[in-house]
Design a protein around this nucleic acid. Structure first.
Length: 502
RNA sequence: GGGUCGUUAGCUCAGUUGGCAGAGCAGCUGACUCUUAAUCAGCGGGCCUCAGGUUCGAGUCCUGAACGACCCA
């Protein structure tokens, strides 16, 4: 949609006029900078009077007849330029005709203006790229901010403009990348091996979700995009890698909303010879360490939904350890007044669901109903970090049975600010138990559950070869970034969220 | 899947009871050699998301569609 408009026409005309004079900015391949804006500011005392070259995007031009001031911006900040006709001659007119967002390289001498601002007295410049399209970088005038690109849809479709125009948007996106980096640094320092496992899978397991389908032409093979990393990583535990992790994109064929994107970045790790409590310690260590690395403090300010619409920022100190541990049924009792007896059979469980305003129609098991009630009544209240433990067996087909209660499992999910921020098990390593669990999931599929786990014979074969007792953890990197960035939507921490084509 | 709201100039937004389409920023022309995301004077720029309907007349009212935001399932 290369929409035509007056401003674009004029900019293209300017470009063509330069080309007719033999000046083609797009033919230039390289410009060597001696300094960045920040280096000039930091080293001003030493640099004053000396020659430098800088490059950046034109942010503003203040013309005053035979001289002008301009601000350019590079990745480190702003630099003011003083451009004089008596120093540039004919080239002065070319500088005057630059547009906001053009990319220039300049050379000149460092000095400080009468108003005390570090400035480059320009002796030469090169147009390195013409912005033929208007880029709304915004402006402040008389203390009034004239808006940059604010339309949510446009910001996501033209993320490049959003990043230029909205520093807070750029910072949230960069912070997200740093979160992933910090998680890797944390795990590498603990001797976890980072691996890559298949995205295209015949059996897409490890989570409750519907996969995207695709097809391999040569093998004439139906394939699915992975919905988790779990089953291949545990094969590697069997294969003798005792500390293993992967940071990878997974794909779930479901709606996109404020905290879901159909493709998102999941980190999963598995550690042999440890258990659920080992994973709790690791989670606390990791989140504290990542927060410290990324934002320099363990106090985060996530956004919490309050009531129907209002959003509220809360303060959470991740370093207040140990985090609360809450059995799921205890949470339901505290928040809905429903005790264990409410879930003694399917009829009473359905009645319990209705009593909290849920429709149990598509909930084929008591465990599913319990989990849904938990999500509705307890989860929104879990603002401070909380490990919810003792998940129902029907919804946890990869977690070991609880030794004290065969209806429960050795599983937790972490919640902060009402958001799920991690899921961990003491992993099943009993191949016979695993086969029974998968078989139970097949029964659920027959009963109409669309997100039940598929049978995976090869995975069971791997367990039959012997897997040590193992703790496993999965964390949504996008969600973790949301908490650290205080983002109100997952899209604020996704470089390019999924959108319908224009 | 259901509901509510939104879509007007390059950007951000006004637009009265249905009666000639508006502002700021940006752009263009001119003035200005220390400005502070300048200042002063003037000027241009519109498929009012799209398709129907009501009406003498629709940006405005009605129906439908597209895209998006939020809420619910």
């Amino acid at each position: 949609m290369l929409d035509e408009n007056e401003q674009r026409r004029i900019r293209i005309d300017k470009l063509n006029a330069l080309r007719e004079r033999g000046i083609d900015p797009f033919a230039i391949e390289r410009f060597d900078r001696t300094h960045t804006a920040a280096q000039v500011h930091e080293g001003f005392e030493q640099l004053a009077g000396s020659k430098v070259t800088l490059a950046g995007r034109v942010f503003s031009v203040r013309k005053m007849g035979k001289a002008l001031f301009s601000d350019i911006e590079d990745e480190t900040g702003r630099m003011q330029l003083h451009v004089r006709r008596d120093l540039l001659g004919d080239a002065y007119a070319d500088f005057k005709s630059l547009d906001i967002a053009d990319i220039v390289g300049v050379e000149g001498e460092i000095f400080r203006t009468e108003m005390g601002e570090d400035t480059v007295r320009v002796t030469g410049f090169t147009l390195l790229a013409k912005a033929v399209r208007h880029v709304p970088l915004g402006k402040k005038r008389d203390g009034v901010a004239h808006e940059t690109l604010k339309d949510d849809e446009a910001r996501q479709r033209m993320r490049y403009v959003d990043m230029l125009a909205n520093p807070e948007s750029r910072e949230a996106l960069i912070m997200r990348c740093r979160v992933v980096q910090a998680v890797r640094e944390f795990l590498n320092a603990r001797d976890f091996l980072e691996v890559e496992t298949p995205v295209l899978q015949s059996v897409a397991g490890g989570a409750s979700a519907r996969p995207f389908m695709t097809f391999h032409n040569d093998l004439k093979l139906d394939l699915k995009l992975r919905i988790s990393l779990e089953l291949y990583l545990k094969r590697l535990i069997v294969g003798g890698i005792p500390k293993v992790y992967e940071v990878g994109r997974v794909f779930r064929n479901e709606a996109a909303d404020t905290d879901h994107n159909p493709e998102f970045t999941l980190m999963e790790l598995y550690e042999a010879y440890t258990d659920l409590e080992g994973m709790m310690d690791l989670v606390e260590d990791m989140y504290v360490d990542v927060a410290q690395r990324v934002i320099g403090t363990t106090i985060v300010h996530p956004v919490v939904k309050v009531g129907d619409k209002a959003l509220e920022t809360v303060a959470v100190d991740l370093a207040q350890r140990p985090w609360r541990r809450l059995p799921m049924l205890q949470g339901i009792q505290e928040n809905a007044g429903l005790d264990r007896s409410a879930f003694r059979d399917m009829d009473s469980a359905r009645e319990a669901a209705r009593s909290v305003g849920l429709d149990p129609e598509k909930m084929p098991t008591i465990g599913k109903i319990i989990e849904k009630i938990h999500e509705k009544v307890t989860q929104p209240k879990l603002v401070q970090p909380t490990f919810v433990i003792d998940y129902p067996i029907e919804t946890s087909p990869l977690a070991k049975k609880h030794p004290d209660d065969p209806t429960l499992t050795r599983r937790f999910e972490v919640f902060i600010a009402g958001q799920e921020l991690g899921n961990a098990f003491s992993e099943i390593n009993d191949p016979f138990d695993q086969r029974e669990r998968f078989a139970d999931q097949l029964e659920q599929t027959k009963a109409g559950e669309q997100e039940a786990h598929p049978m995976d014979e090869d995975f069971i074969r791997a367990l039959e070869c012997g897997m040590p007792p193992t703790g496993g953890l999965g964390v949504g990197m996008d969600r973790l970034a949301m908490v650290l960035a205080g983002a109100k939507s997952i899209r604020d921490v996704l470089l390019f969220p999924l959108l319908r084509p224009e």
